[in-house]
Design a protein around this nucleic acid. Structure first.
Lengths: 358, 358
DNA sequence: CTGAAAGCGCTTACAG
DNA sequence: CTGAAAGCGCTTACAG
C-alpha cells in the first residue's frame, strides 16, 4: 500500500529560526502563527494577541498582522488552542436512532442555533438498548466543553462519570440526570392536561390513551397530565394501550380501539407517530375520524400536517426549548459552578382535522 | 458572574518532577500519561508505547502499565495526540437541512458504520442557498481527517480549498466535486430506467415525470434514465412537471396531473416526498390509484411503506452505499495520494400498492 | 527494551 | 506595547 509515513516525517528540520526568513511559499499548506510572526517580524505571542483583539496590542501592529493573516488565510489551529485553553468550542451531542422524525427536526434546529454561536457538534450514537456510559470514555478523550443528550435515557453510571469529569450536561426532553445535570423540557404534563380539556370540549365521553415506552418519562408525564385533566373535566379513562412509540404499535392499538366495546370516542397518543398508526387502523376498520373517534397526538412533526393524517396534536416549541438548552450549556461552560437547573416550556394545541368537527 | 479563570490557573506548579512522587489522589480529575508514568516508575514514552501495543515493549512492563491505566481510567488525550500525529479520527459531515427524512435515515446508518470503526463525526450545517465554502474555514481549524458531504452541492471554490488542504473528500449521492474528490452514488440513471420498464410492464401508455430541483444531479440522472428507459420500451414522456423535491411541490404537480387532458396514466417522481404530494392531490381529485394513475417514487424512505401511501419506489441500498463511502474515505486517510474514485451501487424496485394491480 | 529530548501549534503569566 | 519562556499532553526519531 505504499508509504504512509505522513506524520512527523522530518520533525527536526521545520524550525523557522534555523531556516532563514520565511517566504510566502511556506503558506502552500497551512500557515501557522510562526509563519505570520516571521513574516511580520514579531513574536508568535504578539500574533496570538493581535488576532484575539487583545487591547494591549498597538493598532498599527494589529492591523499589519490581521492583514497578513487574511492574505495567507491563517486561522489558529483549534486543536493546539484547546490543548492550552481547555476549551474546544465543541459540544457532544448524544442521541439514539433518528427513527422518529421529531429528532431530526430537533437536530436541524439545534445545528442552526449552535452555528450562530460558532459552537460545533460532535455526534455520539447510542443504539437502543445500549447504555450512554458506553460512549462516554470516547467522548472524554476529546476535551469537549459540554454534553447535550437527546432521545436517550442517562444511566446513573454515565451521569456519575460525566459529573466526575465536570462536564456540563443538559438533557433535552428528558428528566434531568439524577443529582447532577440540567434539563430543558416541554411541559409534557401540562400538554396532556390541555388535550383532556380539548377532547372534553369536543364532546368526548370515553377517552383512551396510547402510551409510549414504559421507561420514557415523556410518555409517563403526558399520561399523568391527561388523567388529571380528564378528572378535572369529570371524565375518566376508558381504555389504556401500549404503542411502544412506533407506528406499528399505534396500528395495533388502533385495531384494539376499533374493536373495543364500548368503543372509545377519543384517543390521546403520547406521540404523533403512534397516532398515525391509530388513524391507519381506524381507517382500515372503517371507523370515521373524527365523527366516531377523535384522535390527538403529541410533537407536531412535519408529517402531522400531511393530508392523509391532518392530525390534531400538541406542538412542542422546539426553537424555544433548544435555545433554553443552549443557554443552560453556555452558562455552565463559562461558569462551571452553577447549580443544575430544569427549564420547562409550554406546548400548544394545534387543532386539525382529527378533532375538529366538519 | 464570578470567577471564570479556569484555564492555566497555576501553569507552572503542575510538574510532576518537582512535586515528589505522584499519588492516586492525583487522578481525581483526569490522569495523564505522566500520572501513569510516575506511578509505574517508567518514562512517559514507555507509557505511550505500552498502550499502543508497540512490540518493542516487554510483556511485563506493558501489563503493569495497562493495569494501572485501567485502574485509573486513563485514556490518552485525543487533542494532544492529534496535534502530533496529524490525525484526529474525526471526520466532518457536511449536510443541509434534514427536511427529507431520507437524510436522517442516512445519518443514522452512517453513525452506526463509523461507530464500529471508532471514527467520530463533527457536524456542519449548510442552510439551503448557502455555499459550503462558508463552513470550510471553521472545519479546517479542527484538523479533521476527511470530509463527507451529503445533500449539499459542492461549489468549485469549496472544492478547491479542500483539495488545497489535502482533505480527502467524499460526496454521498452527489456527483463528485470537479477535478478532485470521490463520490458514492446510487445508480440513479439505472433506477430511472427500471421504473420506465416497470410502468411499461404495468400497461402505462402516457407516462409523466415530476422533477426535483433543477440543479440536483440526482433528479437529472433519474430523469435521463427514465426517458431512455421509456424510449427503449417504445414510450415517450407525456408530461413533465417541477416538484421542487417537496411534498407541496408534489401536491401542485399532482393537481396538474389530475386535470391534464389527456391525463397521464403513470407518474415517476424523482423522490418519495413528492410522490406523497402527488398521491394526496390525486386522492383529493378522486383519481383512483393505481387504476387510473400509477405512481412511483425514489428513495424508499420509511414513510413510503405507511398505509396511506403504500408507495412503489426505488430503494437505495443505503447500507452498501455508505459502506463504500466510508471505505473510500478511510483508504484516503491512510494513503492520501490515491486517485479520486466514483462508486455506483444499484437501486432496486420495491413494488407496493401504487402500481400493483389488485 | 527503555529513556531523554524535541516538538506539534498555540496561549499566558512574567518581565521589561 | 512586546518578547522570551514555559507548558498543554502527547508521540516519535534517536541513542543506548
Amino acid at each position: 500500500m505504499g508509504n504512509d509515513a505522513r506524520p512527523l516525517k522530518k520533525p527536526r528540520s521545520k524550525s523557522r529560526k534555523s531556516g532563514g526568513p520565511a517566504t510566502l511559499d511556506d503558506s502552500a499548506l497551512r500557515p501557522t502563527a510562526s509563519t505570520i510572526s516571521a513574516l511580520a517580524g514579531v513574536a508568535p505571542s504578539t500574533v496570538s494577541r493581535a488576532l484575539k483583539n487583545d487591547p494591549s496590542i498597538s493598532v498599527a501592529t494589529r492591523e499589519r498582522i490581521v492583514a497578513l493573516a487574511d492574505r495567507l488565510g491563517y486561522r489558529p489551529n483549534a486543536i493546539a488552542r484547546s490543548l492550552i485553553t481547555r476549551r474546544s468550542n465543541v459540544v457532544a451531542f448524544i442521541m439514539g436512532e433518528l427513527t422518529n422524525p421529531f429528532y431530526s427536526e430537533q437536530l436541524d434546529l439545534l445545528l442552526e442555533l449552535l452555528g450562530e454561536r460558532e459552537i460545533q457538534l460532535m455526534l455520539f450514537h447510542v443504539p437502543t438498548g445500549r447504555d450512554v456510559a458506553e460512549v462516554v470514555p470516547m467522548l472524554l478523550q476529546y476535551q469537549l466543553d459540554a454534553c447535550l443528550i437527546a432521545s436517550v435515557a442517562l444511566s446513573s453510571k454515565a451521569s456519575d462519570i460525566l459529573a466526575q469529569h465536570r462536564l456540563p450536561t443538559v438533557m433535552i426532553n428528558r428528566v434531568p440526570a439524577h443529582r447532577h445535570g440540567c434539563a430543558a423540557l416541554c411541559d409534557n404534563e401540562g400538554g396532556g392536561a390541555e388535550v383532556a380539556r380539548l377532547l372534553a370540549a369536543r364532546g368526548v365521553r370515553r377517552p383512551a390513551f396510547v402510551a409510549g415506552h414504559a421507561d420514557a418519562s415523556t410518555s409517563r408525564d403526558r399520561e399523568r397530565g391527561f388523567l388529571e385533566g380528564l378528572r378535572a373535566c369529570g371524565l375518566s379513562l376508558g381504555l389504556r394501550l401500549d404503542g411502544d412509540y412506533t407506528i406499528e404499535g399505534g396500528f395495533r392499538a388502533g385495531l384494539a380501539i376499533a374493536e373495543a366495546d364500548p368503543r372509545p370516542d377519543g384517543v390521546f397518543c403520547a406521540n404523533d407517530i403512534m397516532a398515525f398508526g391509530v388513524l391507519d387502523a381506524l381507517r382500515r376498520k372503517r371507523v370515521a375520524v373524527p365523527r366516531q373517534v377523535q384522535v390527538v397526538g403529541f410533537d407536531d412533526i412535519r408529517a402531522a400536517s400531511w393530508r392523509p393524517y391532518d392530525l390534531t396534536t400538541v406542538a412542542q416549541p422546539m426553537g424555544v426549548l433548544l435555545e433554553r438548552a443552549v443557554d443552560l450549556i453556555t452558562a455552565r461552560i463559562r461558569e462551571p459552578a452553577l447549580l443544575p437547573e430544569t427549564v420547562y416550556v409550554a406546548g400548544s394545541i394545534k387543532e386539525r382535522g382529527t378533532t375538529r368537527p366538519g
